[in-house]
Nucleic acid binder design. Structure first.
Lengths: 155, 155
DNA sequence: ATAATAATGGACAAATATGTCCGATATTCA
DNA sequence: TGAATATCGGACATATTTGTCCATTATTAT
């Protein structure tokens, strides 16, 4: 039988982006204590496939969101003055792109205020809320909740 | 080079679901005038691939959202007393499932109020808004905006 | 210098979503 | 009853996303 996305379709973020967010939060937490972390550490902490996680971390490095050092004593870290400014929004843009901010909910390329799709106005405020939430939520605040045991990265 | 979802990842709904929503709105509009529409009509109206659209309409038929009749004079329609009650929510559930309503934003299976993921609370109100918007927006209202020329289904 | 370590980058593989083809089934009308 | 029409359903094809493997490059410590 033909099978549908039903019961499976991943909403909001791609899997890569989920991993990227979790990894960034974990790295931030360790960087708060001046600890670099290896790819292996990250993958274990967020329960993600190591090789795939590697690609995602590279992408975050290229976008200047996290920092990497090669060789022994190397690893991933986030600059101290960075994680107060780095928001979920930066990570999402780096991995999933900006479709969330600009694309039409029904996939219409020319949908806009003047020629809106049928759900344009219904989506407008929701998108704005989502956008502003992503732009105001910093890695630091998320990492600190994690440290306090208020939130969890696994399962 | 390794390529990412970036600039491409489809947010909110799957393509199938987008087609499903657009198709339902179009069929509702025609049903308002007691007109059945063929698969071909629908695909033309919403600019979607015909065969794929067929699968999606079947799925909506199975979920009792739209009605179909075989043979000449057949086609798709929505019961008059239906489209005041049918909401975007029904269509999304039928095609993309309920992940939007229940799944964790970071893909954690055991994320909940007591053991929340780092973004759980940030997402909570946004999800609730989205959910209630989908549950209160009826096909009829969307189809009427379309008829009035306030909204558009193409491009 | 050399060995060990860790990230990098390219090619490949698997899974899922999207899209196509075509025969089967049901219905209408002549 | 038979031809025409329209949906239904299964198998197949393509594209995208997710995941793996392995050789290369850079760095550190011996």
């Amino acid at each position: 039988m033909f099978t549908f996305a039903a019961e499976k379709y991943k909403i909001m973020f791609s899997k890569a982006c989920e991993y990227g967010i979790k990894a960034s939060i974990y790295i931030t937490g360790q960087s708060l204590h001046d600890r670099k972390v290896s790819l292996k550490d990250v993958a274990k902490a967020i329960e993600s496939p190591e090789a795939y996680t590697s690609k995602i971390l590279q992408q975050l490095v290229r976008n200047n969101i996290i920092h990497s050092d090669k060789g022994p004593t190397g690893g991933f870290s986030i600059e101290k003055n960075g994680f107060e400014k780095i928001t979920l929004s930066s990570i999402v843009s780096a991995i999933d792109g900006n479709a969330l901010y600009i694309d039409c909910g029904l996939g219409l390329k020319k949908c806009n205020e003047k020629k809106p799709c049928p759900v344009h106005n219904q989506f407008k405020s929701i998108r704005e809320n989502l956008k502003s939430m992503l732009e105001t939520t910093t890695l630091k605040s998320l990492a600190m909740d994690l440290e306090k045991g208020l939130t969890f990265l696994k399962r």
